[in-house]
Amino acid sequence: MNSIVYTFIVIGCFFNLVGSIGLHRFPDIYTRLHAATKCTTFGSIFLVAAVMIQSVGTWGTEGMSSPQSVLTLHAFIALVCIVLTNPTSAHAIARAAHRSGVKPARAVVDDLEGDRHD
C-alpha cells in the first residue's frame, strides 16, 4: 500500500515540475498552455489519488463516518472540479488570445486566420 502511494507521489510531483518548466521552455502562449494544462492536470490526478489511497487504507479500522472517509470523498470532489475546470479555462484563454490578435509562433498552418468572420 505504502509503495503505491510513494510511486503516485513521485509521478505527480514529476509532472507538476515538468508543467512549470514547460512554461519557460516554449515560445508562445498556445504551446505554453499545452504544457501547463496537460501536465498539471495529470500530476494533480496522481497526487490526489495518492491522498485518496492513503485515507482509504484507514476505512477498515475506523468505519464510514470517520474524518478519513470524509477526506477521501472531498479529495475526490476537488479532483472532479480540477479535471472539469482546467481544460475549460485553457480553452477560454486560447480563444481570448487568438481573438485579441496573438499569432501562434512558428506556425506551419493557421486555418482560423482566414475563417474569421467578425
Binding site: 515538468v18 521552455r25 516554449f26 504544457a35 501562434p104 512558428r106 506556425a107 498552418v109 493557421d110
Partner: peptide, 11 residues
C-alpha cells in the same frame, strides 16, 4: 517536447 524543445505547431 519540454526537454528537447522540438515543436512544429499550427491551427
Amino acid at each position: 517536447r519540454v526537454i528537447t524543445g522540438r515543436i512544429n505547431p499550427g491551427i
